[in-house]
């Protein structure tokens, strides 16, 4: 009983709106991190438009679309998890969180297959400087075809941007595991759901970034 009292007392001292506003500020710094990369993409696309189209052709649109659907679905399950928790349906909230985590993992696995296909074609991080000197990636063997500079820029940006995005998926996943643990312990509940809410905001932002990455890499061919 006394434990419950102290708990609600603590809850009263948390400024949820202020915390959320601060978290949104953090999300904008994330947005600007990606915006810098989008800007680089936009400038190089404008100077190497044909190479960008050719390079984008080698990316599989079906896989890209599938991954987009997976991430959108994971955003829905995240929303449902928070809604369930707010209605005290903790069990449902936990299942929806597990579903979100599973979908995020599926996204990463598919992304991994995509990346490894590119590794097999030896187009991982070939450098323009290396190409000028007659050799691109250290993985290239003499028989391999050299890529034009514009395509090297495209794939360089592709690996960096999807790589940083994947890193965010991993961070979001770890966060979900922690939230799940706290939820099963009961420290995250219908009264104290701020942590899940912020985890959700982070996850949705990662989704928003993918919404822009998808057409720029898979639909420009």
């Amino acid at each position: 009983m006394s434990h419950q009292n102290s708990h609600s007392e603590v809850a009263h001292h948390i400024d949820e709106v202020g915390t959320r506003l601060g978290f949104w500020l953090f999300l904008y710094t994330e947005l600007f991190l990606f915006a810098a990369l989008f800007l680089i993409y936009a400038v190089y696309r404008s100077t190497h438009i044909e190479d960008f189209k050719l390079a984008a052709e080698s990316l599989n649109t079906t896989i890209g679309t599938l991954n987009t659907m997976i991430l959108l679905t994971s955003s829905l399950t995240m929303v449902l998890s928070l809604e369930s928790l707010k209605k005290s349906a903790v069990k449902a909230a936990r299942w929806f969180l597990i579903a979100t985590l599973a979908l995020g993992t599926a996204f990463l696995i598919i992304k991994g297959f995509e990346w490894s296909a590119k590794f097999d074609h030896h187009i991982f991080l070939q450098t323009a400087k290396g190409i000028a000197a007659g050799h691109g990636s250290p993985l290239l063997t003499p028989g391999d075809e050299m890529l034009p500079v514009g395509q090297v820029l495209f794939f360089g940006l592709y690996f960096i941007m999807t790589g940083i995005h994947a890193l965010h998926i991993i961070i979001g996943g770890i966060w979900m595991i922690i939230v799940y643990y706290w939820m099963s312990k009961g420290s995250i509940n219908e009264e104290n759901h701020g942590v899940l809410e912020r985890c959700g905001l982070y996850w949705h932002l990662v989704d928003v970034i993918w919404i822009f990455l998808f057409p720029l890499y898979y639909l420009v061919a």
Partner: peptide
């Protein structure tokens, strides 16, 4: 076209999934 559709999708996520429609003006 691609960027317009992406912007609409992003706006939907921001407004409804991230609940900006229920947040105070400052957000």
């Amino acid at each position: 076209i691609a960027m317009s559709v992406a912007s609409i999708k992003a706006a939907l996520v921001l407004t409804y999934f991230m609940h900006l429609n229920h947040e105070p003006m400052i957000f």
